[in-house]
């Protein structure tokens, strides 16, 4: 295990004692700063708009971030393992949703959902194989794959959209338990499972180790390439889940349904503080990142800022998050 995220806070590096106060503050900020930012934002939001802290509005926020949150939970693994980025997220969302709704009348909804998720995991595995065995740049590999997959998905529906005919599953996704929407439970289940997989299994440790230092991990006998492939497969599967859930929610699937999700998911992961270069971060941090972006968007809506203008704020959040992250890391080290 590496870094300040998992182990105790150390004041020693290379045998020299650093100023403990600075290091402590830096390390604590590194570990808990992100949650404090979320709390601070919520406090600010409450002051700015009285309607922010109502149950209905808070539920709105979590419902609106659920889809991107599920995709971001999987993308976290790609970043953790040092895979940099998965640009296939939008096309995998579309492919999985289209395959699911297309096969639904013949094989039934449960099998269709499984088939859609399998498609996503399959695309992710192909990404992973090319990245791991050919050591190709993940950005360009997933870019090429997204063009291919988008074309294939589009050829199934001939460029049109396809509708959901199973009313039951649509109602289930839209339903609420204790007035909390089903998709939020699904999001929490994925984040919980992702966190457990990362922290409590050998595979999770391999992910962190591979991301931190692939060469050292290989030398210590880890199956580095398989770990990388699995990380990309996880990202493909979660993107598929997000796409299928989105299709059930809106009642149809089309090729452009996931447009922009890859960047929203990356924003959430980066704002959450997972390192771009792998080896440090967690799925629960990504959840906090998703919520931060969701809260900011919500506040802007409440303050009646146009939706189209929100990109400027999102851009500023990304820059701020990355700069703060770099500064705290530098202080800790």
């Amino acid at each position: 295990m590496t870094g300040s995220d998992s182990g105790g806070i150390s004041f020693r590096r290379n045998g020299r004692l650093r100023s403990p106060s600075l290091a402590t503050i830096g390390a604590l900020a590194g570990r808990w700063g992100i949650a404090l930012v979320l709390l601070g934002l919520m406090l600010l939001a409450t002051l700015l708009s009285p309607s922010f802290l109502s149950t209905g509005n808070l539920l709105n926020i979590v419902r609106s971030v659920a889809f991107v949150g599920i995709a971001a939970a999987g993308l976290t693994y790609v970043l953790l393992v040092g895979g940099l980025m998965d640009l296939t997220i939008p096309s995998v969302m579309a492919l999985a949703a289209i395959v699911c709704l297309w096969s639904q009348p013949t094989i039934g909804t449960p099998a269709a959902v499984a088939l859609g998720i399998a498609c996503g995991a399959g695309v992710g595995s192909v990404n992973g194989v090319i990245v791991a065995y050919f050591r190709a740049n993940p950005v360009i590999v997933t870019l090429g794959m997204s063009i291919v997959i988008g074309g294939l998905a589009s050829s199934i529906v001939l460029g049109n959209q396809i509708y959901n005919y199973d009313k039951g599953i649509g109602d289930f996704v839209e339903a609420s338990v204790f007035s909390i929407p089903t998709v939020v439970f699904i999001l929490l289940a994925f984040v919980g499972a992702g966190e457990l997989l990362l922290r409590r299994t050998t595979f999770g440790r391999w992910v962190i180790a591979t991301g931190a230092n692939a060469a050292a991990s290989r030398a210590s006998g880890l199956r580095v390439q398989r770990t990388q492939i699995a990380a990309f497969a996880i990202s493909g599967a979660t993107a598929a889940v997000a796409g299928i859930l989105l299709a059930f929610t809106v009642g149809y699937a089309r090729i452009s349904m996931g447009a922009g999700y890859e960047f929203d998911a990356l924003t959430a992961v980066v704002v959450g503080g997972t390192s771009l270069f792998g080896g440090s971060g967690s799925v629960s941090r990504t959840l906090v990142g998703v919520l931060i972006v969701g809260v900011v968007s919500n506040v802007l809506v409440l303050m009646s800022v146009q939706t189209v203008s929100q990109g400027m704020v999102k851009g500023a959040i990304i820059v701020a998050a990355v700069s703060i992250d770099m500064r705290t890391r530098r202080q800790v080290r």
Partner: peptide, 23 residues
Amino acid sequence: FGRINGMIATLATMLGIRALALT
């Protein structure tokens, strides 16, 4: 000069500039 990763920085400006154009 800000030493922010190029992919992330231009992702941020991509979102920001598009929003500016739309606004």
